[in-house]
Design a protein around this nucleic acid. Structure first.
Lengths: 132, 132
DNA sequence: TTATAAATGTTATATTATTACATACTGTTA
DNA sequence: TAACAGTATGTAATAATATAACATTTATAA
């Protein structure tokens, strides 16, 4: 199970904002949105984001420099993430597919490298955009 | 087969530099290295990088904002990329594993999304760093 | 309670990437 | 070859993303 983390004040403000958002949020858009709550500087945002990523409450979409709340109540998600990204509407969702995650978590090759984490991003067109 | 592209002057300068590098290169490090060749501005670098990525001669390592030359002579690689990244020495290499690429290229789920591209980044410790 | 780790606040700055606009080159085809 | 379209280049300015450095405060636990 995921360890229960007591979020600090800033962490909670920022997590709640991201969690409510239907789309990935960028750091400076987060900053803009929390300024009325007293969070004034980029570093305050980035520190909270770093922590939230570390404990798996949010994920960074690397190709977009944006953050979404974890959709997955199960454990280990911060070490094994997969997303689908629509290149037209930019909708992003977390893929929760146990076969996929099992396959990738168990992946090993001849390089002698020990993999402890992965991030996978699929790109394409979502149902809506496909039919346009 | 991969279409043969005649690289332009800037594209060639920048590709050659990246191709010779044993590690992923960042845009501004590339800029610094090609200034003696007359490429003076970030935009000149980014334009060449964009094109080189588009035609699959290089790949962007999203989690590192860095670029490496494609190690794969086969086609389609720019649409189906996988890398292993050592979190200690930051060594990055392209994974060429046909089972993995087949599995991911054929991946589909119930979302109704049509996937046309993916990027996968594995993290861990390489052989050398593991034994330290 | 005292020490330690974690979080916060603040200023400044570094790094990564794009906009906007003008010009030049390359290849095609009329 | 002239005209065109598409691609590439040059340049300046600026936007967007992220971190360094330092001082202080709060939470946790020994």
């Amino acid at each position: 199970m995921q360890k229960e983390h007591n979020l600090s004040k800033n962490q909670k403000i920022i997590f709640d904002l991201i969690d409510k958002s239907r789309e990935p949020m960028k750091a400076y858009s987060i900053l803009f949105n929390v300024q009325k709550k007293g969070i004034k500087a980029p570093l305050q945002v980035y520190r909270a984001l770093d922590k939230l990523v570390e404990i798996g409450k949010i994920h960074k979409i690397e190709s977009r420099n944006a953050f979404i709340a974890c959709q997955n109540s199960s454990c280990q998600v911060s070490k094994a993430t997969a997303f689908s990204i629509c290149e037209s509407c930019e909708n992003v969702s977390e893929i929760s597919n146990s076969k996929l995650s099992k396959y990738l978590s168990n992946f090993s090759d001849s390089s002698g490298m020990k993999y402890s984490k992965y991030n996978l991003e699929f790109f394409g067109l979502c149902k809506k955009c496909k039919s346009k």
